[in-house]
Design a protein around this nucleic acid. Sequence first.
DNA 1: CAGTATCCCAGAGGATACTG
DNA 2: CAGTATCCTCTGGGATACTG
Lengths: 127, 127
Amino acid sequence: MTEPLDPAMFDGCSDIDLPIRFRNKWMGKILLCLEDGRRRYSELQIPLKGITPKVLAESLRALERDGMITRIAYPGMPPRVEYELTELGRSLREPREVWCKWVDAHVHELLRARMEAEGDLRDLNAS
Amino acid sequence: MTEPLDPAMFDGCSDIDLPIRFRNKWMGKILLCLEDGRRRYSELQIPLKGITPKVLAESLRALERDGMITRIAYPGMPPRVEYELTELGRSLREPREVWCKWVDAHVHELLRARMEAEGDLRDLNAS
DNA sequence: CAGTATCCCAGAGGATACTG
DNA sequence: CAGTATCCTCTGGGATACTG
């Protein structure tokens, strides 16, 4: 039989808890957008449909603080700023791709499960 | 040079957007707790230090709706309920481990980056 | 034991307008 | 162009008490 769970199971185990910053809605997309080269602020806004300037700026600052990206500002008018992945930021590619592969492979099961759950709810409401 | 970013970059690309449910604070830990066997509700509360019954119940319902776990209720008094990973739930192990390995390998760089950022802030405040 | 039922709050994220 | 500044909403998650 399975052993009892250790109360200290996660002590010193930052592995699971740390990625709070990656629970950010846009992080994954921003990182992906930067994966094939430097991008300007305004360039990022295009594929990131719906992101507001405030949220994009905040997300970029957070990624910068975490050492995931570098901000490169060119002096002059009009301003020109580019963002680029650091080595650390680039190293995220592998885990992200593994995750994406999982989703590709299982998204249908997941959606089906959710739809069945919805169906059950409808049944309940109907009764 | 890098090509312009496609405005429709994420169209039909659920890969990045879908895991909203996994942005849940406790999902990773719950899944991990279930990884080596069935667990009772009360057993889960122990390593998940600090989780409230409401949040644990909500998380379990969500995981169930997504087809990640199964709820097994034994009739009788006092009640006894066990949770178990489904095949789908078990398949999450690999991506989770890849992610954990990334954190293990890079947590120091991340923490150092954050501390440096803090330092910069202090410098600013001091000036 | 395995949960609900209530109430509450911080903070993530959005809308809009403005600026060096 | 590359952001700030404000204001606002919403909901994930916590605290506490109660129950079949």
